[in-house]
């Protein structure tokens, strides 16, 4: 019997050691006094990938001794991870709904603040070969349209925009997230998709963005908040402050986000 258990025990020890490495506190950070140091773990919406990566680099430069780690993903998935106890310090959501889910579960530390706004654009192939200029054009039979599923923020926003334009779209697919939707345009599988302005900007010219009037009726607010169980509360507050600072605004603005 003991021969059976020895390897198992070794395995268990190894697993525990690994867990210890990942989960342990990384240096003094919760002091709250003077200079901010330590790790900040930020759960941020996928659409923030480029701008927050940039912001993280700048924050680390401004606060030597800190290190920012990101977990980018769909806002609702992130909200669920937080509610299931994921060790996060900051949550930056692409929709107030997902922020509310965390807040209702008692996970938010301070008051959520809207730090950015995103508006929709029609993403089309470079040069707009199908001459799409409005939401109404998207219902033309020769136009293959991809939308986000209603369950994700970009899909909800698209629904609002179409309602404002009084147009009923006929999408061929309802994608799981905005990046997947945009990929379909990039690969030429669809002729147009409704995505965020920032996502179009992030392709760096691979697709063109077409503005439309009703975009103003479907503005997406991005709230940010520190979390109640944040392991590194001080550093978390410092990061949120940095996002809301003029430097933060500047980075977000370049990525296509509007000011709140």
């Amino acid at each position: 019997m003991s021969r059976t258990w020895r390897p198992l025990a070794a395995l268990a020890a190894a697993v525990l050691a690994l867990a210890g490495c990942g989960g342990g506190p990384a240096g003094p950070s919760n002091s709250g006094s003077g200079a901010v140091t330590g790790d900040v773990t930020v759960f941020a919406a996928a659409s923030l990938t480029e701008s927050f990566t940039e912001l993280g680099r700048r924050f680390e430069a401004a606060h030597p001794g800190t290190s920012v780690k990101f977990n980018f993903g769909g806002s609702s998935a992130l909200a669920q991870q937080i509610n299931n106890g994921a060790p996060a310090d900051v949550f930056a959501s692409a929709s107030p709904t997902n922020m509310k889910q965390v807040r209702d579960a008692g996970g938010v530390g301070g008051q959520p603040v809207t730090f950015a706004r995103n508006t929709l654009q029609i993403a089309v192939a470079r040069g707009d070969p199908k001459h799409i200029a409005s939401l109404a054009d998207l219902t033309r039979p020769d136009v293959r349209l991809a939308l986000c599923a209603e369950q994700v923020p970009c899909g909800a926003a698209a629904k609002q925009a179409f309602q404002a334009a009084n147009v009923t779209p006929k999408p061929v697919t309802l994608e799981q997230d905005v990046k997947a939707t945009l990929t379909k345009v990039q690969l030429g599988e669809v002729d147009a998709a409704l995505v965020y302005r920032t996502d179009v900007a992030a392709t760096k010219g691979k697709v063109d963005g077409v503005d439309f009037a009703e975009a103003a009726k479907a503005v997406n607010d991005y709230p940010i908040a520190t979390l109640a169980r944040a392991p590194h509360a001080a550093a978390a507050r410092a990061f949120v402050d940095y996002v809301l600072s003029p430097q933060g605004r500047e980075v977000l603005g370049r990525a296509g986000f509007g000011a709140p």
């Binding site: 769909g74 369950q151 697919t173 309802l174 994608e175 379909k184």
Partner: peptide, 21 residues
């Protein structure tokens, strides 16, 4: 194949999107 109810939305896709909300 994308995701559209009735043509391409299979159960796993429906499950995934239900998880969102």
């Amino acid at each position: 194949a994308g995701n559209f109810p009735g043509t391409t939305q299979t159960m796993p896709l429906a499950v995934y999107l239900a998880l969102e909300t």
